[in-house]
């Protein structure tokens, strides 16, 4: 029963909340979608927290994504012991980096009065679930080694079954690692709280900046075609009416 609650009900509730909440917040509460950077109030110790934290999570996120999307490729890559070691050590290092960064950020928030002024309750929740998520992930990596290999066997089928609306929880519920279970549950909890926390900022990571032209000129008139236009570049947008 508990397994069904944690591995079937929770994921669906989390995903539904995430989808509806994020879209609503983006469309109707645009002013509240922000990374809420506090660098302006304190910039020096932020560097030692924010950089290792974000880069650590950045690589871990894509690592998990690759393991989920291309499990066979990953297993093939891991065929060599050296490659397996590289991937396991690198992942662990990124995990440590994220943990270090998180602790530095928490310390900064606790000790700096200015940063405390822009801290809200949801920030505490964010720190808590991130701490559980990172620590449980590191424990899995340490106590149940070679996760990049068994991920494909245990987690990929489970996650895939969730997304095709045919949840199969046999593998995940019988797995003999409480850390892994915590890791999965807290992962879905994070997804669930994204729309209610500063997590939203990773959804608006500005990838489109890469192909946007540098200058943007917008005309008020003829709004339908002009307002949304991204086609402007130096002097190329002219006949605007």
């Amino acid at each position: 029963m508990l397994n069904q609650l944690l591995f079937i009900a929770l994921p669906y509730v989390a995903l539904a909340t995430f989808l509806v909440g994020s879209i609503y917040r983006y469309l109707y509460k645009g002013f509240k979608v922000s990374s809420l950077s506090s660098q302006f109030l304190e910039g020096r110790t932020l560097f030692f927290g924010s950089q290792p934290f974000h880069w650590g999570l950045f690589f871990l996120f894509f690592g998990h994504l690759i393991a989920f999307l291309f499990p066979s490729t990953l297993i093939a890559w891991n065929g060599h012991t050296v490659r397996l070691l590289i991937i396991e050590c690198a992942s662990f290092a990124f995990g440590i980096s994220a943990l270090w960064g998180l602790l530095a950020l928490v310390t900064r928030r606790l000790t700096n009065k200015r940063v405390q002024m822009v801290t809200n309750k949801m920030d505490v929740v964010v720190y808590l679930v991130l701490f559980i998520q990172i620590v449980s992930g590191l424990c899995v990596a340490y106590f149940n080694r070679w996760g990049s290999n068994w991920f494909a066997a245990f987690l990929t089928p489970y996650l895939r079954s969730i997304f095709v609306f045919d949840p199969q929880i046999d593998a995940i519920s019988t797995v003999n690692s409480v850390w892994l279970k915590i890791h999965v549950v807290s992962a879905f909890s994070i997804i669930a709280i994204i729309p209610f926390t500063r997590f939203v900022h990773f959804l608006v990571y500005p990838v489109d900046y890469l192909w946007r032209s540098y200058q943007q000129v917008i005309w008020n008139w003829d709004r339908r075609s002009i307002r949304t236009s991204r086609a402007h570049s130096y002097g190329k947008k002219s006949l605007n009416n």
Partner: peptide, 20 residues
């Protein structure tokens, strides 16, 4: 963005994400 009509440069408060 820069306004086409008068060249005033503005920040859209709903699109700003505090990338600084």
């Amino acid at each position: 963005y820069k306004r086409g009509e008068d060249g005033v440069v503005l920040i859209n408060q709903e699109r700003c994400r505090a990338w600084r």
